[in-house]
Design a protein around this nucleic acid. Structure first.
Lengths: 360, 360
DNA sequence: TGAACTGCTGAATCAGATA
DNA sequence: GTATCTGATTCAGCAGTTC
């Protein structure tokens, strides 16, 4: 089954997800409710004789109900997720611990917890606690064995001034223009997330064209960011009013042109060039000598693309590791050849071969 | 019962806590095993081996076994805690969700989760995830009705440059001189916490003279910080070797008057504003064109904050240097974007983002 | 004397394709 | 499923040495 680029479903998210085909979505982003409905039931103002056991029981019942709900929607979510897909869940200390345990118990494998560090949080007015200045996101693959989840490491590193992206993200709250307002000017949704947060989630863990499912769609931040970034989305939401806001909002989003979606790619994704091809193409010749950067080691190129140091023969990687007594070695950067300007890594020859290859 | 100012008990923490009188301590700080589940060896890019936490005390058979252990020590801890006392537990995503659920289920009432944001975390060497740059602390009172927990609001605010203390704390790792070393110069304990972290915990949630219990005492960071701040402590630790280090260490601590205490690490590290954030926040869009001041060079913005001039892609700084054939370039001042009033340097956009982040 | 440089290290669930 | 091979991958801070 393939989805249209924009799907919004009104209804209960568990039923709606169970109606979707299994293993059909690439990423799930979920911002579940965390109204534990505590306080009212548990507060006993008379305070005359608080039975501690009863207190715990009440609390347990309430937490148990939330846990049951959490496990049910997570289970439904896991069914529709592709085996190489991943899930994000956002929450606060009220619910995130319970969500995290359910995520782990259902077989997801946590990859990171990520902190959304708010630049402009609401202060704690009473001065009774630390200002609650962050929320927590859990990023998990479908299972421990699912090693092929999407992570655009190089693009994220580029987006962070060429330093690898950390697990704490500093992003402002959703305010001002971006905040969706109702007819009376009041905020349309109590917990609208900033689009910058979703931008980073989607940029880091999906590819263009991927299908993103949001079971608690609200006013459609996930949909807006997905559309902007050329991803498909499925949003599920119970409240007709939120859906109305979401539709209006998403209709106004202009997608980035496909050719402008291109980002810094991974070296791992580049086509493999065996060292033998360098020799085959005459960029090096059998009998030529390779050197390590300091010239301490020298190796001879052989016709089949292996190299020799004394009696030792093998691949550029193996021999490189052996002469250094290292557990591993990248021969492309370790070995150099002589040029007029001095030693140059053989990786430049590989780059020449790749440049001459037809674009895929 | 009253305790001496410094008590260290060797033994199992659950048995030792059960031997203490109930409702006798003011604060508990616990740094339990994290239940890391590591694969094989991890090599850095330079082929050196990461010194992993592979100690026997961190090994558990299953989540269920870890949960059982967690509930048992938390239950024992709750018994010895005064009704107006509080508990801190620190952990990572491997264990903190399970700890948090146990804390809630046992009747504690979470007041905050606090993020220890590390200035100098270990990077992710393989480029597979976000750098794991934080740990999470849970701060909880003994029960929901226990409103009289200690929180030194004004002192904390003062120590934080007159701004309310937030739930994310930026503090460096414990390294250098502070790190306790064994006879052979290697680290005495694999997970020693920075004293600055304990200062802040103790300063914010205890009064001078309070009794602080640490059931996983290790090399005694809690004891050292408690003594320095004029609090009593009880440390429980199984390993005789750790206790030996702790005693030596704590003996060298000179208590200081709280008013003389300078909050360590309270200066907020000003996060850089990477160019990717400008795009993320929609101040520029993928596909937009940047120009040098004279308009001779043009570059296209990409979704990850890299830019492209023809086939060349890279950061604003790198590409700026390349088009000028210069060794280096400040991309913020070199590249401009079109406005109604002509070209403006992209640095004005960075200023806008910074202005929107008063507490970044 | 100081700047520059080299080396080491920190709670880490850390690769991917092919045979 | 396992075994083998290619070859990609790090940031901040401290200590010790060199220039």
């Amino acid at each position: 089954m393939s989805f249209g680029p924009e799907t919004i479903i009104q209804g209960d998210c568990i039923e709606a997800m169970n109606a979707l085909p299994e293993k059909s979505v690439d990423l799930i982003f979920a911002d579940p409710p965390y109204n534990l409905q505590l306080g009212g039931d548990l507060l006993r103002p008379d305070n005359s004789k608080v039975d501690a056991v009863d207190d715990h029981w009440d609390q347990f019942e309430s937490f148990a109900a939330y846990d049951k709900f959490t496990r049910e929607w997570l289970k439904a979510a896991r069914r529709v997720l592709k085996d190489d897909g991943a899930i994000w869940v956002i929450g606060s200390y009220h619910n995130i611990f319970r969500v995290g345990v359910a995520v782990q118990d259902l077989g997801f494998w946590i990859l990171n917890d990520v902190i959304w560090r708010k630049t402009n949080p609401m202060p704690n007015f009473k001065g009774t606690r630390f200002a609650n200045a962050h929320e927590t996101l859990i990023w998990a693959s479908k299972s421990q064995n699912a090693k092929r989840y999407t992570f655009n490491y190089d693009a994220l590193k580029m987006a962070n001034d060429e330093v690898q992206m950390r697990s704490d993200w500093t992003i402002p709250l959703c305010t001002g223009e971006e905040r969706i307002k109702g007819a009376d000017g009041s905020k349309a949704h109590p917990t609208q997330k900033p689009e910058a947060l979703l931008y980073r989630v989607i940029l880091s863990t999906t590819k263009p064209g991927d299908v993103i499912l949001d079971p608690f769609f609200g006013v459609g931040t996930t949909g807006a960011a997905a559309k902007r970034l050329g991803r498909k989305f499925i949003g599920i939401e119970r409240e007709a009013e939120y859906i109305e806001h979401a539709r209006t909002r998403i209709a106004q989003v202009t997608p980035i042109a496909p050719q402008d979606l291109e980002m810094t790619g991974s070296k791992r994704a580049e086509p493999r060039v065996p060292f033998g091809v360098i020799v085959e193409n005459g960029l090096l010749h059998p009998g030529d000598t390779l050197y390590c950067a300091k010239g301490a080691h020298a190796a001879k190129v052989r016709p089949d693309g292996s190299i020799a140091v004394g009696d030792l023969t093998g691949s550029i990687h193996k021999i490189g590791a052996m002469v250094q007594s290292a557990p591993a070695c990248n021969g492309w950067t370790y070995w150099h050849f002589k040029t007029d300007a001095g030693l140059a890594p053989i990786d430049v020859l590989r780059a020449q071969v790749r440049a001459a290859m037809p674009h895929a």
